[in-house]
């Protein structure tokens, strides 16, 4: 009888040890005080603020360094205004073109297609429908920049993903594609 009891105890212990290897929990550390930061880190929790998050939104009206104010409002009038009056501040050269092409490939080609014909992979897989070809729309550098900031209809804003200069580089590259399409 003793043997049987021992057997059960051993299986139980084995199961307990086995259950310790849990891929959903982080491993233990030698000296956690050398691993765990004392200061606030990105995305950490913090009781310094009411909502318990370290990452706070900037105070209303804050202007980050290097930011340029954008004066056209997010409305139809603003769009039309930007389309005619907003001009590119950058002197588009080969270097800008290379960057613009790379960024276009990352952020735009998914829907608009590598050629700007509206045949991106999300369109081909029917996740998105009705993405127009650049050739069918009356767009200018200014209107592309405006839409990159605010988004328009089904397209969302990409101002969080692209800096001011990058937006202009992408806009120039998109206009280049349009020229190719219209030819």
């Amino acid at each position: 009888m003793r043997k049987e009891i021992l057997f059960i105890v051993y299986t139980f212990l084995f199961l307990v040890v086995q259950s310790c290897f849990d891929s959903s929990a982080p491993n233990y550390q030698y000296f956690p005080d050398m691993y765990e930061p004392i200061g606030y880190t990105t995305y950490s929790e913090s009781d310094a603020f009411n909502n318990g998050i370290e990452a706070q939104e900037p105070v209303n009206g804050t202007i980050p360094r290097g930011m340029m104010l954008y004066e056209y409002p997010n409305s139809n009038e603003g769009y039309e205004d930007a389309k005619i009056n907003l001009l590119s501040p950058i002197d588009y050269n080969d270097e800008d073109r290379a960057i613009g092409k790379e960024l276009y490939g990352i952020y735009c080609a998914l829907c608009h297609g590598n050629k700007g014909d509206g045949q991106g992979i999300l369109m081909k897989r029917e996740k998105f429908l009705g993405v127009p070809s650049y050739a069918d729309r009356d767009i200018t550098l200014g209107s592309i920049y405006h839409v990159l900031i605010y988004g328009r209809n089904a397209m969302g804003s990409h101002s969080g993903q692209l800096s001011i200069k990058e937006r202009w580089q992408v806009a120039h590259y998109a206009m280049e594609l349009r020229k190719e399409l219209i030819k």
Binding site: T42, I121, R125, S157, Q161, L162
Partner: peptide, 29 residues
């Protein structure tokens, strides 16, 4: 869907952190 890593983790291009995308990026699609 072959979405580029950097579409959502856009800060990997410009900062120390690769960044957990904020939800507005999800809402773009």
């Amino acid at each position: 869907n072959k979405i580029e890593c950097k579409y959502c983790h856009s800060s990997a291009r410009v900062s120390k952190h690769s960044g957990i995308p904020s939800l507005n990026v999800c809402m773009n699609c």
